[in-house]
Amino acid sequence: MHWLQQLTNGLALGSIYALIALGYTMVYGVLRFINFAHSDVLMLGAFSAFYLAPKMEAIFGPQSAIGALVIIVLAAAICAAIGILIELLAYRPLRKRPKLTVLITAIGVSLFIEFTCQHGAVFGAATKPFPKLLPTRELHFAGIEMASNDLLVLVLTAVLLVAMWFIVQRTKMGMAIRAVSFNEQAASLMGVNVNRVISFTFGLGSALAAVAGIFYAMRAPGIEPLMGVQPGIRAFIAAVLGGIGNLPGAALGGLLLGVLETVAGGIPGVSNYRDGIAFAILILILIFRPAGLLGKAMIEKV
């Protein structure tokens, strides 16, 4: 059952990609641009958990479930605030400007966060070991081995996806998000507070990125200020794969990419080029189905 093992590993990795991809795709949906700083918000989420962990351990005891939950919620809240702040300071003043300007600014913001955090006075460039938030156990089921953390990631991702679906499809704010995404001007004429909707979107996406960052850190050997770049790029590709701006697409794309990467990593000869696989997928999808798997081709109106 070797391939089944690969599949479960891939799904665990893919669900992390899916969580990050949701943030990209939601921001793209309302603002039509790629928030390059998203991958750095993910890193900040992991670092928030890193600094919160000892304090929570003092209150709740080591590796307690409630402590881990509090850490995740707090880190998500911190990152939501950071995400809203980034939009407010860097992107909002440029909203009516040409897209290239906003794109370059987003890269600037991303570099600014990365290199500020690399400075010795902030986090420092060295890799830090990530604390164990939860007791880990190897679970055996039908010949498949699975770390309890990976199972938790899968379950939690599923829960968060359903929650996202609920927020976007069943709440008033979700309706406003869909309206802004469909036509910002018309939405604003109908009394939707566009600025608030955009802030909310950034906050929600960044909170998801924080959760993903913590899970990613649990699997990684350690955390450092550039840790967000690789999963960030993968998640962006996942969002394009599923159809950018499309929420189920982002989830599907993330899972698919995680599985493909893990499976390819297990094939001898291909594994050297594992890093290139995601980009190869991106180029293929751009050639054959630029709207993504679940996206609808949009006709650009003049």
């Binding site: 860097a90 300007t101 600014t105 600037g108 913001v109 570099l111 600014f112």
Partner: peptide, 8 residues
């Protein structure tokens, strides 16, 4: 990075 942001 600051040069990029401020110039933009």
């Amino acid at each position: 990075a600051l040069i990029i942001i401020v110039l933009m």
